[in-house]
């Protein structure tokens, strides 16, 4: 059996002459949380829909749990794609009962379990039409978990949630992943993804830009430049010296300068400044966040960001 829960090979979707997704190939290993990144219109949702069997690829193929899509293995997939939708005239609980009946084989007790898991047990008997967006997101996540799927495809699951809600969903997803569920999750909140994902896929204009672990992405992009935060009592001299050394810098709040140094000369920076008579009161090497890495990746692709 394949060690990948999801495999895509040459996945392509065209709408007329427009390529929504072009020749996308990637694997998502079992039991991992994989982040799916890309700007609006980059083909994330289209890809997730293809993986869920909702739209047919123009070319290429994908497998989920080693079965072709569409196919019977999709019964073990839970999804929340874009804003979750419900029958507004039924309560949250009844919407879940409907989905459970449709899928089949879901014990009645499971409804209460998932409602409890997303902290919706109190509001479950109100009509969905009266729910806030955050409540709908939670209920959507509960529905995606209903039949204990082995793979979850989640598209912006924290949209519309407050910080507490986001943290709760993050913990919930961690708990789900700990049970061995494979999660492919797209999000615009990169800091959240950074806390959650083991690896990332980055797409842009329907093409795959990066497929690998988060740490490799960060290291790879840090390879070109290293960022330092420097402070000196004599800020003017520090700026003059940095100009002399042809280093790019910007002023942050107060006297703190953010300096970009080529990787090969980074180790010598402090020594060189000291040799030139600059006394530093603060010197910190910054680590790239996923957001920095992501933005640089897109810049390298020629997209103005």
């Amino acid at each position: 059996m394949s060690e990948n829960a999801i495999e895509a090979r040459g996945l392509t979707k065209r709408y007329g002459r427009k390529h929504a997704v072009s020749d996308l190939s990637f694997d998502v290993p079992f039991g991992r949380i994989t982040g799916f990144l890309g700007p609006n219109g980059s083909g994330k949702t289209t890809t997730l829909r293809m993986l869920a069997g909702l739209i047919r690829p123009t070319a290429g193929r994908c497998t989920v749990l080693a079965g072709p899509v569409p196919g019977p293995t999709l019964r073990d997939v839970g999804t929340m794609i874009e804003e979750p939708s419900f029958y507004p005239y039924m309560s949250g609980r009844k919407n879940l009962i409907h989905a459970a009946l449709l899928h089949g084989g879901v014990p009645a007790s499971r409804i209460g379990e998932v409602l409890d898991f997303v902290h919706m047990d109190q509001a479950a008997d109100k009509k969905v039409g009266a729910y806030s967006q955050g409540m709908r997101q939670r209920l959507g996540l509960a529905r995606a978990m209903l039949w204990q799927p082995k793979v979850m495809l989640l598209d912006e699951p924290t949209n519309g949630l407050d910080p507490v809600g986001i943290a709760e969903i993050r913990e919930a997803l961690r708990a789900i992943a700990a049970q061995g569920v494979t999660i492919l999750i797209s999000s615009h909140i990169l800091a959240e993804l950074e806390k959650l994902a083991n690896s990332v896929l980055v797409v842009e204009r329907g093409r795959l830009l990066y497929d690998g672990t988060l740490s490799t992405l960060l290291n790879q992009l840090q390879g070109a430049l290293v960022t330092y935060r420097l402070r000196s009592d004599d800020a003017h001299s520090l700026e003059e010296t940095l100009r002399d050394m042809n280093l790019e810098f910007s002023r942050l709040d107060g006297d703190v300068l953010r300096v970009l140094v080529p990787q090969d000369g980074a180790g010598d920076l402090i020594g060189t400044l000291s040799a030139r008579g600059i006394r530093l009161s603060e010197a910190n090497r910054e680590h790239d966040s996923l957001e920095d890495a992501y933005l640089r990746l897109l810049r390298e692709d020629g997209r103005p960001v």
């Binding site: 909702l54 569409p70 196919g71 794609i81 939708s85 419900f86 029958y87 989905a99 449709l102 899928h103």
Partner: peptide
Amino acid sequence: GEERSQNMWKTTLVAQPQR
């Protein structure tokens, strides 16, 4: 009709993929 007007096809066809 309601599956479309309430945007429910994406839910229905995931809960029951056999079209």
